[in-house]
Design a protein around this nucleic acid. Structure first.
Length: 344
DNA sequence: AATCCTGTCAACCGCGGGTTT
DNA sequence: AAAACCCGCGGTTGACAGGAT
């Protein structure tokens, strides 16, 4: 279809915003809410394109934005979610209250990515750059990788839906605050509606996950709209078709979760009275809890010696083990949740 | 003091997806 | 059904600040 860029209009200002422009934008949004961004600049008396206004608002002027240094918990959350979701900043941002996707993206690119690289870990795949680790117990590692991939697929789909709900909710809250009904409506999108949360996440307060909801979700048996095809996945060793290639044989009673390709144990599934299937994947809390003592601390300690009680350990030793610890800690999270995460 | 280098981050750009006409 | 429109996302850029030489 080809759309013309919105910012190539002659006379529209670009570049840094002035305090006066900020004031105009704020005043307008407080008065009228943020309905149509395209129409907003003219109405607000701004020589900017709507896109620029939206960006300024969402990344800077919004009242619920927290600025400044990222906390350790926020760093943990970013790293964990990035391992699961990759560069899906908006999805990651939904779990970092008051942080924007742009800010998270910048922080990742300028801080966390480098920290991982420094440790010899590929920040894209979260794999050690040398795959030596896999040379030993291939089958075991690959199995774990496959499980992790399945978990990531689930989390990705869930977060995607959750992100929509959060966005809609935030908009509603803001407009409610302004005493205005939504101009956009709040019909839950189809994919979001497919993931109906059943219970709150446990109230673990670490890692900034306190606001997360339960991943236990209900999918009607006919639904298949959520699939890997629409979800770029974080890649782990042996991910592709790992279940068949690595000797993971579906146990009796396991079912292939249509659309996700996830091997689902019968213990994960319960038929609800309305003929929908309830599926209980591992919670991200469990991920966070398990990771916390392992690779997250490793990362944090690496970045800030003051936070580490190491130094007891020779540098050579710790450095040599860093990538192994990192990888093992990710695998540990898979292995460590057998009882309450029947998925694995 | 001047210049260069590096890091940071606000802002821009292009694209894709969803909605409306 | 197709075109037009709008919005949001993720990658990238460039201005600026601060440190190193």
């Amino acid at each position: 279809m080809g759309r013309s860029p919105c910012c190539d209009k002659v006379g529209l200002k670009k570049g840094p915003w002035t305090p006066e422009e900020d004031q105009k934008l704020l005043a307008y949004i407080e008065e009228h809410g943020c309905g149509s961004w395209r129409a907003l600049p003219a109405k607000a008396g701004l020589q900017r394109c709507g896109k620029s206004c939206r960006l300024r608002w969402t990344n800077y002027l919004r009242p619920d934005i927290k600025r400044g240094k990222f906390s350790l918990q926020e760093e943990q959350t970013i790293i964990q979610l990035h391992a699961l979701l990759g560069n899906r900043w908006s999805a990651i941002a939904t779990h970092l209250p008051k942080r924007t996707d742009n800010e998270i993206k910048n922080y990742w690119n300028t801080h966390l990515k480098k920290r991982l690289a420094k440790m010899g870990i590929d920040p894209v795949t979260h794999k050690p750059k040398s795959d030596a680790l896999l040379s030993g117990n291939d089958a075991h590692q690959s199995k774990n990788a496959a499980n992790l991939s399945h978990m990531a697929q689930w989390e990705s789909a869930r977060l995607e839906a959750e992100a929509r709900l959060v966005r809609e909710s935030k908009l509603r809250t803001f407009q409610h605050r302004l005493g205005r009904p939504s101009t956009t409506g709040f019909a839950i999108s189809a994919s979001a509606a497919q993931l109906v949360h059943k219970s709150p996440w446990n109230s673990v307060s670490n890692a900034g996950f306190g606001d997360l909801e339960s991943p236990k979700s209900t999918l009607t048996s006919s639904e298949n709209g959520i699939g890997p095809s629409s979800m770029p996945m974080t890649e782990f060793p042996g991910t592709a078709s790992a279940s068949s290639e690595t000797g993971i044989i579906k146990q009796e009673g396991e079912q292939e979760w249509k659309g996700l390709g996830v091997a689902v144990s019968s213990t994960n599934l319960a038929m609800e009275s309305n003929n929908s299937l309830t599926f209980t994947p591992p919670s991200i809390h469990e991920i966070g809890n398990t990771m916390e003592d392992g690779f997250i601390n490793l990362l944090l300690n690496d970045s800030d010696p003051s936070l580490s009680d190491s130094g007891k350990e020779s540098d050579g030793n710790s450095r040599g083990n860093d990538d192994k610890n990192y990888w093992n800690s990710i695998l540990d999270l898979v292995n460590s949740s057998p009882s309450d995460s029947p998925m694995f």
